[in-house]
Design a protein around this nucleic acid. Structure first.
Length: 237
DNA sequence: CCTCCCACTTGAACTATTTT
DNA sequence: AAAATAGTTCAAGTGGGAGG
């Protein structure tokens, strides 16, 4: 989970300021949104840092005998690869796994969410399936496709997010994805949790640094403690 | 109800243009 | 020519409205 602290609000973040009628709070919200976005790219980095990656897919695919283990090719490398035909819509990852003679290729679309967005899911589904169809014949592996919602533990929820338009076997949880890559899902979740702790602290610090929100918070706390006192009084009664 | 399209945001990667 | 700057595109998130 990326951090809010240290982020620079965008020039064009005025929309948030308008929502609150407060420039400083608008900038804080802009930073929050920036963090949401960058957390997605960060997840990719967390994953690829923990597996062996292929930086020349063409060279890899020219091999006569595929190596044992788990190897991952990223979107960029897929784009560069001339042996594969992506026609402008590359999947996030292509994973080659060989264990005890079985060679599998997993084409994966990864999302740092808990559900596939219904507005984009259809396009993503079609792009991934087309990619698999176009390229399965060029790969010396049994090819399968997967849609992974990293923060979802129930494959059925992912499947339903696709309006059941994918095979339920294509719906992949973050844990299943990590199992496939032979990396530790919980460890990645832990890493991100520590940033979340800093984020909540920083967010509250900032709220208290803005004079307008600080005084409002103080007002609310004061009236709540009055309420609490009254409740106690009622109880005693 | 569902689907599609839009508006708003950040950030990274390219591309193009201007400056030195 | 090289470097810096500016613009474009794309991927990622949200919500809302129009229309079937």
């Amino acid at each position: 989970m990326a951090k809010i602290r240290g982020r620079i609000p965008k020039e064009t973040s005025g929309g948030y300021a308008r929502v609150f009628g407060n420039e400083a709070l608008g900038e804080l919200m802009s930073k929050v949104q920036g963090t949401v976005i960058s957390a997605g790219s960060e997840l990719e980095r967390l994953i690829t840092a923990r597996v062996e990656t292929i930086d020349d897919l063409d060279a890899f695919l020219r091999k006569d005998i595929m190596p044992d283990g788990v190897l991952l090719g990223k979107k960029k490398e897929i784009k560069k690869c001339t042996a594969l035909n992506a026609q402008g819509s590359e999947p996030d990852f292509i994973i080659f796994k060989r264990r005890s003679g079985h060679q599998r290729c997993h084409i994966v679309e990864l999302k740092d969410g808990h559900i596939f967005d219904t507005k984009k899911a259809d396009g993503e589904r079609e792009a991934l399936h087309d990619f698999a169809k176009r390229n399965a014949g060029r790969l010396p592996y049994r090819v399968s496709t997967h849609f992974c919602a990293f923060n979802q533990d129930d494959a059925e929820v992912i499947w339903k997010g696709f309006k059941q338009r994918i095979d339920i076997k294509e719906a992949m949880t973050g844990r299943e994805f990590c199992d496939l890559l032979e990396i530790d899902y919980d460890e990645i979740v832990e890493v991100r949790k520590s940033d979340a702790e800093d984020n909540i602290l920083y967010f509250l610090e900032e709220l208290l640094r803005i004079p307008e929100t600080k005084s409002l918070i103080e007002d609310i706390l004061a009236s709540e403690s009055h309420l609490a006192e009254r409740q106690i009084v009622f109880k005693i009664d």
